[in-house]
Every structure is written in C-alpha cells, then in structure tokens.
Amino acid sequence: MSEKLRDVETEEQLRACYPVMKQLRPHLETEDDFVARVTRMGQQGYRILAAWDEGEVVALAGYRLEENLVYGKFMYVDDLVAGEKTRGRGWGARLLEHLTVYAEQAACVKLVLDTGMANALAQRFYFRQGLLTGAMRFGKFLKAGAA
C-alpha cells in the first residue's frame, strides 16, 4: 500500500488537505481562505499531520504544542477528521497514536482536544482511544473587529 502519515509542509500539500478539512469545518468557504488561515496559525505553532493514500489526503489532524499553568507542556489537537469515504478504517486512531508518540517525545504531560457536547460518535471514539473527559469548556462569541 502507498499509505503514510506525514506533516504538511508545502502549500500544495496544504491545498490537498482542504477537501477533508472542509468536512469538519464547513465554514471554511474557500481553499485560499483555508491556506491563509493555516499559514497564520503556523506562526503560532499549528501543524497538520495528514494521512495519505494513493496520493490523496484521506484524514488529518491539526495540532500544536502549548504550555499553560493548568497542564504544563501539552499537545492540543485542534482538528481531527477522516474523510467521509474512509471513515471507519482506523485513520483517526493512527493519527492519534502518532500524535501521542510525538507529544511524549516533546515531553508533553497531556494530549488535549475538544469535541461538541452533542457529538456522541466522536465521544465514543475518543473514549475507545483512551481519552477521558476532564473539563467542560465555556465560551462566548465576541463582536469581531469592534473598536
């Protein structure tokens, strides 16, 4: 098989990720917007690990290494999605396994991600992968660009 996991490093690879990311983040209206956002986020340490099969991105995880007073050094997984055509084939588990090893090598004490309260399928998947609930996150939307 020609499947493999690798970090996205070029704009061409990033553009190949857009169709899969769009399934998770439908508000990303254009490929150019996606590229611009990820490029900006990259300046803050955001990376994408993509699963490739036959030259096509079939799943991906967006992540970053962070540190705070709650956890210390940790890996935050912003995005985790398998493409609709390849769900159920173990891509999410492989991505999480790879990220776990990477986080351990980077001396992180925890791997953290968020999922929606109503997303029962994702919650069951995360429990099967050994992730446990540890907090409830609160937030509110703010007026963008308010002076």
Rank of each mutant, 00 (worst) to 15 (best):
V8A: 04
E104C: 09
F74H: 12
R137E: 01
L131N: 02
H98A: 14
V109T: 13
G83S: 05
G145K: 01
L69E: 02
L24G: 14
F34A: 13
L131K: 04
F138V: 11
A135H: 12
L113C: 08
A82K: 02
R124C: 06
S2A: 05
G145E: 00
H98R: 13
M136C: 05
V77C: 11
E11S: 05
L96C: 12
N119I: 11
T86L: 01
A93I: 01
G134I: 14
E12C: 10
Q105N: 12
A61S: 09
R137S: 05
R128Y: 11
E9R: 09
D53A: 13
D53G: 11
F34W: 13
E56H: 14
R25L: 15
A122Y: 05
G130I: 11
M41A: 15
L65E: 04
R94T: 07
M41T: 10
Y76V: 08
E67P: 06
G116R: 11
A118E: 06
W52R: 04
A103F: 10
T86K: 01
G130M: 08
K73S: 03
L49M: 09
T133M: 11
Q129W: 08
Y71E: 04
Y63Q: 06
K143Q: 06
Q23P: 10
A144H: 04
V77E: 01
E3M: 08
V20Q: 05
A103H: 09
R124H: 09
K140G: 00
D114T: 14
A36G: 08
Q44Y: 15
V109P: 00
V20A: 06
L121V: 15
G145D: 00
G42R: 05
T39K: 03
Q23M: 11
A16G: 05
A120F: 07
E9Y: 00
A146F: 07
K140E: 00
V109K: 03
A103W: 08
Y126P: 07
G45N: 03
T115P: 12
R94A: 10
L142K: 06
M21T: 12
E31V: 15
G116K: 06
G92Q: 01
A36E: 08
E12L: 13
V20K: 06
L95M: 07
Q129C: 15
L28R: 13
G88K: 03
E104W: 07
T100C: 05
D79N: 10
M1D: 09
C108E: 00
Y102W: 10
A107V: 13
I48W: 03
L131A: 05
E29S: 07
K73A: 02
A93N: 05
K140S: 00
L121K: 13
D7I: 08
M75A: 09
H98L: 01
A59M: 02
R6Q: 04
L24M: 14
D32K: 15
E29C: 03
K85Q: 08
L69G: 08
G145R: 01
V58C: 03
G145N: 00
L111T: 14
L95E: 02
L113W: 01
